[in-house]
Write a protein that binds this DNA or RNA. Structure first.
Lengths: 164, 164
DNA sequence: TTCAGTGCAAAATTTTTGCATTACG
DNA sequence: CGTAATGCAAAAATTTTGCACTGAA
């Protein structure tokens, strides 16, 4: 199964950390051991982490962190724009690092996942949101469920998955 | 809660109902009063219904239908392809009628859900898919998580939810 | 009549909250 | 020190399951 990994660059991570510090400051929130542990573990994670996974990682360093703190901190991470929640079909909410965001193209036959980005689409999204009543887009999800040329039965069609 | 309308045509509804009957038949499932009530209420619903909403509607006609039956029937509806589950970020799973596809704009503050369509975006999606390797787009999900003007703190800003 | 389907309530899951205690600033 | 934040456990909220009873075929 094709899995696209997106590791945020060190540069992005630095910016996100700064954003977090600024968020704490501007909301008069304290810096605590636990929050630091959780945020660091979250930013270090390179995929969509569930609460459980995140808690497990945090506890390796600081064994007595509780569930509630992870939930509360994750809520702050979402509010501050560092984390995006995603619901897959397993009933667990997972969180992805903002800035590692990509849209996905999925071939429904071979399950390959490609990523894409389109500035034009993003621009149109904002137009749509503005037109519908002055909304500001915070984030989005965009998934295209497709058939690759091969699965379409096109003569000589390839699946990018198997090329090269 | 503001819900945009997008009614499947009578023609589509008829086809879906036929699909349901065929599903029951081919899986040797019984037709029951409750299943009929639930499926009809679901197909009649013109937005994304949550379990609660659907149960409430069903109980108007048949007051002693239980939660469990709704859950179980909805699972069948998903299996049969009549319903698509959607997880927005308000913690409730919602279901939309297949064939009544639309994209969504969600206000993360008031949880209002609006629908939108943009031919331009759809055209760009196809361009993207073609460019990535000759893919054909079968369907897609597109969700914009936004803040309404009021939630943005814009002076005099309204939430379309409360206008009029 | 038979057994799939239902309703209820209890269990399992996931997330939130109340409150005494800890520790940041 | 004062009070925001934590940890724990209890409460909510959502979904699933067990089981005796009902009703479709």
């Amino acid at each position: 199964m094709g899995q696209a990994e997106h590791s945020p660059t060190r540069e992005i991570l630095r910016r996100l950390k700064a954003q977090w510090v600024e968020f704490l400051r501007s909301h008069s929130l304290n810096t605590t051991q636990q929050r630091e542990n959780i945020v660091d573990a979250f930013l270090r994670s390179q995929e969509h982490v569930s609460i459980d996974q995140l808690l497990a990682r945090v506890r390796k360093r600081n064994p007595k962190v509780g569930y509630a703190t992870v939930y509360r901190t994750l809520r702050l991470l979402v509010e501050s724009g560092l984390a995006n929640p995603r619901q897959f079909e397993d009933g667990q909410t997972r969180y992805e690092v903002a800035g590692a965001h990509h849209d996905h193209l999925i071939c429904v036959k071979c399950n390959m996942i490609l990523e894409f980005e389109s500035e034009e689409i993003e621009r149109l999204q904002e137009q749509v949101a503005a037109r519908l009543g002055g909304f500001r887009v915070l984030r989005h999800k965009h998934e295209l469920y497709c058939l690759c040329p091969k699965a379409q039965g096109i003569p000589g069609g390839h699946c990018p998955n198997e090329k090269e």
